[in-house]
């Protein structure tokens, strides 16, 4: 319990750092957002007036404090280009991105762990050599390319789904999931390869350890030696790796959203980057960071539960 509290505290400290870095780096950019908004034709007076209206004439620290207070209450300020509160702008986009990420994570776990176990049990057979080679290849396929291949195979040739035919989870959650399965697989594929390979390697390493011999000496069947002794030990390094993979998956979903035209945070982030809409960029980066740190926290706690040797 104390461990969990300390981890949660660390999480908020990290987020605080991220918020400082993000906010201040965007304030350091030369050129006034007010000028960007009004165009080069604007008079100095009108720029000044707009800056005042946007609160840009206040000191950076004061603006940061105000922004942070807002963020804590769920208010990320106002978008420069849409004239709307950022929160309203990204609320339902966040849902799509989160649903996609969670599905990708779920697929990664559900496929890679049985696959890794299967590969370990078949180790040194032809099938294992084939799967290992196949894994190596899959790891080299970037998710946006596998996304295009999936679109081509399942969308264009087999017509299992309509490319670009995203249905909002508000309309129908089931149909939304039915569509998101494809991008989620594209994101999950390289991770599945990595995790299953890692699990196979750790199972092989654990199988040679002394406690496995002890387990056999007590009359355990091979199956119980594997499921009661080896597997959980082998999963410990896998959990650590999954923690890092989750961060990649959340970041990766931004790219794959584009492949499948999912109206998530990816699209609005990209348009805000080209439109220099800083409040939106800041909000999205901070939110993504929050989910990355949160997933790391969950993994840390899981890890703690699995491995009693960790007491720090």
């Amino acid at each position: 319990m104390r461990y969990a509290l300390r981890k949660i505290a660390t999480m908020f400290i990290t987020l605080f750092f991220v918020s400082v870095i993000v906010f201040f780096s965007f304030s350091l950019i030369p050129g006034s957002p007010a000028m960007n908004k009004l165009g080069t034709e604007a008079t100095p007076e009108s720029i000044k007036a707009l800056e005042h209206e946007m609160g840009l004439d206040r000191p950076v620290a004061e603006r940061y404090g105000k922004w942070l207070l807002g963020v804590v209450r769920g208010d990320f300020g106002k978008s420069y280009s849409y004239n709307q509160p950022v929160t309203k702008l990204i609320a339902d986009k966040l849902g799509a991105t989160l649903l996609l990420s969670v599905m990708a994570i779920a697929i990664t776990i559900l496929v890679s762990i049985p696959l890794g176990i299967f590969m370990a049990r078949k180790s040194d057979t032809k099938l294992d050599i084939f799967l290992s080679g196949f894994n190596q290849l899959i790891m080299a396929v970037p998710s946006f390319f596998s996304g295009i291949l999936i679109t081509l195979i399942f969308g264009v040739v087999l017509r299992v789904f309509v490319p670009g035919g995203y249905i909002s989870y508000k309309t129908s959650l089931i149909r939304c999931i039915g569509y998101l399965v494809f991008p989620a697989f594209a994101i999950a594929l390289p991770k599945i390869s990595m995790v299953s390979k890692l699990l196979k390697d750790t199972v092989m390493a654990e199988s040679g350890k002394d406690y496995v011999r002890t387990a056999y000496s007590r009359g355990n069947r091979t199956k119980s030696v594997f499921y009661k002794h080896v597997l959980f030990n082998a999963l410990i390094p896998v959990i650590t790796f999954l923690g890092m993979a989750f961060a990649d998956i959340i970041a990766g979903s931004i790219i794959v959203e584009q492949v499948f035209s999912v109206p998530g945070m990816g699209r609005i982030l990209l348009s805000s980057i080209s439109g220099r809409d800083y409040p939106v960029i800041e909000a999205i980066i901070l939110l993504l960071a929050f989910f990355v740190v949160l997933s790391n926290l969950i993994v840390d706690l899981l890890y703690h539960k699995f491995d009693p040797r960790i007491n720090v």
Binding site: K209, D210, Y211, R213, T214, A215, S217, R218, H229, F232, N233, I236, F306, D307, P308, R309
Partner: peptide, 16 residues
């Protein structure tokens, strides 16, 4: 028939 081994630390499962 039961058996005990040289290294009690590694012969015990670390996470049970």
């Amino acid at each position: 028939i039961s058996m005990i081994f040289q290294e009690p630390l590694t012969s015990l499962n670390p996470i049970r």
